[in-house]
Computed example of a mutant assay.
Amino acid sequence: MGSSDNSSAQYIHMVQHLIEECILFKMSREECMEALSKHANINPVITSTVWKELEKENKEFFEAYMKGKDDERAASETETTQRIHKIILDSSSSSKDTKDDE
């Protein structure tokens, strides 16, 4: 294995480590690709390729991870909808109070 092969392996290992860090922050593959491109100057194609290889090697983990992300997204959407409804209700009741005062 030449020095070029060794440095390529080190680079891929570094990208893998950074992807693992992104996972700790609960990022999606797309978010990770964007973050590594912006902050570590890593080509998104490289990040995507390494991520896909990690998915192949750790199928059960990534299935659970993505299910957790989907559940989290659904909960967040539900929470956002509930907040919007509350804002609308609060707004309509305060405008009703204002009209009652007139």
Rank of each mutant, 00 (worst) to 15 (best):
I23H: 00
N6W: 09
T98F: 14
S7P: 02
T47Q: 01
H13G: 09
E34K: 06
H17V: 05
N43S: 05
R29W: 02
E31G: 04
I42L: 01
K99Q: 13
E31H: 14
M1D: 07
L89I: 10
S7E: 13
S76A: 04
T80L: 15
S28K: 06
Q16C: 06
E31I: 06
S92R: 12
T49G: 03
N41R: 08
F62M: 04
A9M: 12
I46N: 03
S95E: 06
N6G: 04
K56H: 08
K56T: 06
S93H: 13
S91F: 14
Y65C: 00
T47W: 02
F62K: 00
C32R: 02
A40V: 02
I42C: 01
S93G: 03
E79Y: 07
A40W: 07
K86M: 08
A74Y: 13
R83H: 07
E79Q: 08
S3N: 11
E79G: 10
E57Q: 07
S94T: 15
M33G: 06
M33N: 07
S93M: 11
P44G: 03
E31W: 15
K67H: 12
K26E: 10
E55T: 10
S7C: 05
A74N: 11
T78R: 12
E55Y: 00
W51D: 01
R29K: 15
S95Q: 07
E60T: 12
S37C: 12
Y65D: 00
Y65T: 00
D70V: 15
Y11D: 04
E55N: 03
I42V: 09
T49I: 04
F62E: 00
K59C: 04
K26D: 04
A9H: 04
G2Y: 09
D71H: 13
N58I: 02
N43R: 11
G68L: 09
F61C: 03
M14W: 13
S95A: 10
D100I: 09
E102Q: 10
L18G: 00
S37Q: 08
E79K: 14
H85D: 13
V15G: 01
G68H: 09
T78S: 11
H13V: 05
A35D: 05
E31N: 06
W51I: 01
G68T: 12
S91I: 03
V45I: 14
I12N: 01
K59L: 14
V45Q: 06
I12F: 07
E60N: 14
D97C: 07
A64R: 15
D90W: 13
T49W: 01
I42Y: 01
L89T: 14
T49F: 01
G2Q: 10
M66E: 05
D5T: 15
Y11K: 10
R73V: 11
H17S: 15
E30R: 13
H13A: 07
R29T: 04
K99R: 09
E63Q: 07
N58A: 02
A75F: 07
C22Q: 03
T47C: 01
C32D: 01
S91K: 12
F62S: 01
D5N: 15
S48Y: 02
Y11R: 14
Y65H: 04
E20I: 03
T81P: 02
D71L: 09
S7N: 14
T98K: 13
I87S: 04
G2M: 05
C32Y: 02
D70H: 14
D101P: 13
K52A: 08
D97W: 12
R29V: 05
M1T: 04
D71E: 11
